[in-house]
Amino acid sequence: MKFAVTPYTIKSIPKFVEAGVDIFIMGNEAYANRLVHSYSNLELEEASKLIASLEKELYISMNIMMHNKDIDDIKQFLGFVKTLDISGIIFGEVGVYQVAKEMAMEDLLIYHPETLNTNLYDPIFWDHLGIKGVTISKEITLEEMKIICKDSPLEMSMIGHGHLNMFHSRRPLIENFFKYNRSEYEDLINNRNLRIVEEIRNEAYPIFQDLHGTHIFRDKALESFQEIQSIRETLDVFIIDGIFKDDEYLLKVVSEYQAILNQKEQTLAEEISKKYQEDHDSGFLYKKTVYDKY
């Protein structure tokens, strides 16, 4: 199993490699949603060379909900990406597959639509279309995940750590609310310090508006310290998403996962997990959502 992270800076990459990271997920905000940092083409070129020199891998995130107006830009950016030393392209909308296929790049694609890869047939379907990998939906339990990964023909990944996105609207919801109230809003666009709290739930959900619309996240970040040993047996790529955190946090988390895997001590996993309990939880790893019943 490989570790993937979303670095905030290029200069941190060597430190991540030392800590045991194998894959770096980076992108440009014009073509990707919910990045920790938007990298220019020049920066991506630099990162690509650095990562290759360290014998590690770069995945480019291109998970926007593509609209017609984006198609030409996506083609152009894929043309640029083709010149880089990369190992994967993460996409979330099937139109991007069509564009990549036209450019004979489908074998680099990893399908990560957030919610749609929910059963063991999904990797089989995508294998027939010649892509590289599939990221399992975040509302899938640990047991389901293991079944889906077992015997999968594709590279299987999951977000194992970090704030999970739970909502994406094309609507500018922050802007519209303040326009309705005739208040200033410009400073609130791209502000990642915003939270919404529902009337009867004591949970603060991160929310932000960017050029692709409005995004809302779970209040607590997911952690899988106690599960990492068993996850390793079936999963190919364990993604640690650093959104709303920083490189320091990411480095610490990677080191702790590595320590658990190296020492193979479940008690250490429990100790580390306990340290994170205040603002982390196990997401849907053990929580089966209700089907057809209300």
Binding site: M65, P113, E114, T115, L116, T118, K138, E139, L164, M166, F167, H168, S169, I174, F177, L188, N191, N193, L194, R195, I196, V197, E198, E199, R201, A204, I207, I216, R218, F284, K287, T289, V290, Y291, D292, K293, Y294
Partner: peptide, 30 residues
């Protein structure tokens, strides 16, 4: 693409249980 309902009520929006959490009232904090 939405799991508001899954997260807030355990009801799976993509399996018939959407609780319409997007229609609820919230407070917004910076």
């Amino acid at each position: 693409r939405c799991t508001l309902s899954n997260n807030m009520t355990d009801r799976d929006a993509n399996r018939g249980g959407c609780a319409h959490s997007c229609r609820w009232n919230y407070d917004l904090y910076d």
